[in-house]
Structure formats: structure tokens, C-alpha cells
């Protein structure tokens, strides 16, 4: 797989204040990278540096092998992006917006425009003025606009902002389908739980520094698993188990152990005359995994 985006040691100063410290990460085709961090961590600034919207103080960005600083037009030609909010001309209709955007690229046909309209499901409202759209519809039109020229890299800055759960679900499906078509997607959010079901890689940024980048699969594997156990009583359980559990109520506990060790613990409980009614493996959220990994740093 080839690298679509390479971010190397990106630094940004606003005056004397350094807002980005050596931010680095890569993105390959078909990969969906979640760029996660609290508000003000430097997500949008990083994205703006990648897109040439702000000058790079130090470091380099390559898109499709082209240096953004030196070969801007070539580098940016294969990028579709929404930064902060979908930037549309309110006094034009949806279709007029798409037509206008398409004229900046070569060879976009009327069919291409119809294709993206269908892709984001705006067929019925496309000839209305954008000022009459809901935020969710604008988001979708924004994505349609950024997909017009069949980009290899799609950059979405907080695309779920203002979307209702249904909208978030639709967007998730849309992005998964795009990734299947080998588009690399960089998606930023301050809310990890929204992204965890579909991103392939997570990159966490805090105070302008990347504190971890890893594949979601690995992350989940590495961490302990939570098991909820219902039993007859929790009395005296502190004498049986170490401190890797929590009492939920008088007849159930949560146990945090490696998956392979659960049998050992169940046996121990049975040996100590406890009746076990049910053992349920609880999915660990990505956020919890991160908290574990980063030693208890809350992300938001």
C-alpha cells in the first residue's frame, strides 16, 4: 500500500507561542485515520498546515509524494477537504455550488456531479438555495463537493459537529464505503466514541503533541478486558480477588483481566463456594483503551 499523506515533524508558531510540536503521522490508501484530541489541542491547525491554509513554521507535508510547500497545486489536486465547517456559498443552490467547485478542476462532467449528489442523498433538495439547508444537509453537500474530483485523500475536520445520531450513522456508512474505494481519510474529532467503530488508525494529539498513534485493532487487543459477573453474593470477595475488580451491587462485580485468564478467576470463585449465574464480556471502548494506555489522561 502506498502512502497518500506523510506529515513530518510539523511545527507551528503563532508569534512566540508554539502550538504544534513535531507532529508526525502517515496515511495509506484505504486507511481511515481518526485524529483525536480535545478542543484546542491543535487538530485544526495541523489540518490547515496540511492544506496550505497556514504557513508551516518547520517540518514537511507530502501528499501523493508532492511537497505541499513547493508543489502546492499538484499536491492539493488530489485532496478533498472540509475544514471547520462546510464552506458553501449560501446565495447559490446546492447544484450551483457543485458546478462552481467543479470548474476548478479539469474533466468533471455533469455525470460526476450527479454521482456525488446521489452518493450523499441530496437529490431532492439539490436545486434549493443552500441558505435553506439544515446543518446536516450542508455537511453532506460539503462532502459531495470535496468528492467531486475523486480525491485520493479526504480530510474532514469535525464532520460530525451538529449532526444528529442518524446523520452520524449515515456519514459513518458513507466513509466506510469511500475507504473501500481506496480513498485515504483523515477525520478529526474531539469525540472518540463517534469514530471508534469505523476508523482503522487513531492518532491522539494533546497540547500540540502527538501522544500516540496506533491501529485500532492492536490497541484493543493490547488492553485488558472487562467481564461482568453475576453471583449469589459479593460478601468476602476481597479475600478471594486482588484489586482488579469493582463491586457493582450486592450480587455482581466487574472484573478486569486478560481474556486468557478468565477461566482461572472463575475457578477460583467456584472453589471459594460462590455461585456464578452469568459471565458477560463487555466491549472496551476505544476511549477507555486510550485512558488505560496514556496512564489515565482523559481525552476530552
Amino acid at each position: 500500500m502506498s502512502k497518500v499523506l506523510e506529515v513530518k515533524n510539523l511545527n507551528k508558531y503563532f508569534g512566540k507561542k508554539q502550538v504544534l510540536h513535531d507532529v508526525s503521522f502517515d496515511l495509506e490508501e484505504g486507511e481511515i485515520l481518526g485524529f483525536i484530541g480535545p478542543n484546542g489541542a491543535g487538530k485544526t491547525t495541523t489540518i490547515k498546515l496540511i492544506l496550505g491554509l497556514q504557513s508551516i513554521s518547520k517540518g514537511e507535508v507530502f501528499i501523493n509524494g508532492y511537497n505541499v510547500k513547493k508543489d502546492f497545486s499538484k499536491a492539493i489536486a488530489s485532496v478533498g477537504a472540509i475544514v471547520e465547517s462546510p464552506d458553501l456559498y449560501m446565495y447559490l443552490t446546492g447544484r450551483q455550488n457543485l458546478k462552481l467547485m467543479s470548474s476548478y478542476y479539469k474533466g468533471i462532467t455533469k455525470e460526476d456531479i450527479d454521482r456525488v449528489i446521489k452518493l450523499v442523498g441530496l437529490e431532492h433538495r439539490i436545486d434549493d438555495k443552500v441558505s435553506k439547508y439544515s446543518l446536516g444537509m450542508r455537511q453532506r453537500l460539503g462532502i459531495a463537493a470535496s468528492l467531486l474530483h475523486k480525491p485520493k485523500l479526504l480530510i474532514l475536520d469535525e464532520p460530525t459537529n451538529g449532526l444528529d445520531p442518524e446523520g452520524i450513522k449515515e456519514m459513518r456508512e458513507l466513509l466506510k464505503n469511500l475507504a473501500k474505494k481506496k480513498i485515504a481519510i483523515l477525520i478529526s474529532s474531539h469525540n472518540l466514541s463517534e469514530l471508534e467503530s469505523f476508523i482503522t488508525t487513531a492518532c491522539v494529539i494533546q497540547n500540540g503533541k502527538v501522544i500516540s498513534t496506533s491501529s485500532v485493532k492492536k490497541l484493543k487487543q493490547k488492553s485488558t478486558t472487562t467481564f461482568k459477573i453475576d453471583l449469589n453474593t459479593t460478601k468476602g470477595i476481597d479475600k478471594v480477588l486482588n484489586d482488579n475488580y469493582e463491586i457493582i451491587d450486592e450480587d455482581s462485580i466487574e472484573l478486569y483481566v486478560e481474556k486468557e485468564e478468565i477461566t482461572k478467576y472463575i475457578k477460583k470463585l467456584i472453589d471459594n463456594k460462590y455461585d456464578i449465574y452469568q459471565v458477560v464480556k463487555e466491549e472496551l471502548s476505544l476511549e477507555e483503551a486510550f485512558i488505560q494506555m496514556t496512564g489515565g489522561n482523559k481525552i476530552d
Binding site: V83, L88, Y89
Partner: peptide, 11 residues
């Protein structure tokens, strides 16, 4: 209106 961003990420 923020549309300048959309304009500046064109080739």
C-alpha cells in the same frame, strides 16, 4: 463566511 478555505484548497 469561511469560503476562502474551500477556494484555497483548489489546485
Amino acid at each position: 463566511k469561511g469560503t476562502i478555505k474551500q477556494l484555497l484548497v483548489k489546485p
